[in-house]
């Protein structure tokens, strides 16, 4: 663990190939590392630095800018309760407070069994469903306190297979087959697209 596995590395290379500049793949690769280990380890950052040819400090610089990347071991389920303005108006603070009591931890902490990490987060674009939350980035709308407790129970008793472990974002990945890919021109070469040329729109 920790460095990218063979399989992750294959996915990583697929992703890298889609960008004219390798470094563009950095954020997707950090997600990949987080999917593999549940958090982003120093070893993974080092490995990513190696494969895209930048320094580990640069990887860390980017990684640490974005909230979703956890650089310490994280709970298997990241509970993000929205405290954006719309949810705030409809009781987000109480819901967070309730969550703290139910889980026995404060915002920003992980339960001792390593199952839940709790956070109050900024607006998650479900404002009309306030108060809302995400568990491992899966939405739960208009959450009441009892619903919250029910969710926690379901997860503890492993009844929520619809919610993958922390780190897995999209369960569906983009695949581009070799036959269908358009490919791209090097950024160093100024070549006008054929369809413009044919339309006489470039000299």
């Amino acid at each position: 663990m920790s460095r990218l596995t063979e399989e992750s590395l294959r996915t990583a290379n697929d992703i890298i190939d889609r960008y004219p500049i390798k470094k563009s793949a950095l954020i997707p690769l950090l997600h990949l590392a987080q999917e593999q280990d549940g958090w982003v380890t120093d070893e993974a950052m080092n490995h990513i630095a190696e494969i895209i040819g930048i320094t580990p400090a640069e990887v860390l610089g980017t990684c640490s800018f974005y909230e979703m990347f956890k650089r310490q071991p994280n709970g298997e389920y990241q509970v993000n309760i929205c405290h954006g303005i719309s949810c705030h108006l409809l009781g987000a603070d109480q819901l967070i407070h309730h969550a703290e009591e139910t889980l026995g931890i404060h915002e920003g902490e992980t339960t001792s069994d390593g199952i839940f990490s709790l956070e109050g987060v900024e607006c998650i674009a479900a404002c009309t469903e306030a108060p809302c939350m995400q568990i491992n980035y899966r939405y739960q709308n208009q959450v009441s306190e009892s619903q919250f407790d029910e969710l926690v129970k379901q997860i503890r008793s492993e009844e929520r297979s619809d919610i993958p472990k922390h780190g897995t974002l999209a369960k569906v990945r983009q695949n581009i087959s070799a036959e269908r890919i358009a490919g791209f021109d090097s950024i160093d070469e100024s070549i006008a697209p054929v369809w413009l040329e044919r339309n006489g729109e470039v000299e």
Binding site: Y19, I27, F69, W195
Partner: peptide
């Protein structure tokens, strides 16, 4: 003759 790729890219919270 029109060819173009659309690459899905993810953010990470910011």
């Amino acid at each position: 003759e029109f060819s173009v790729d659309i690459v899905l890219h993810w953010g990470a919270g910011a």
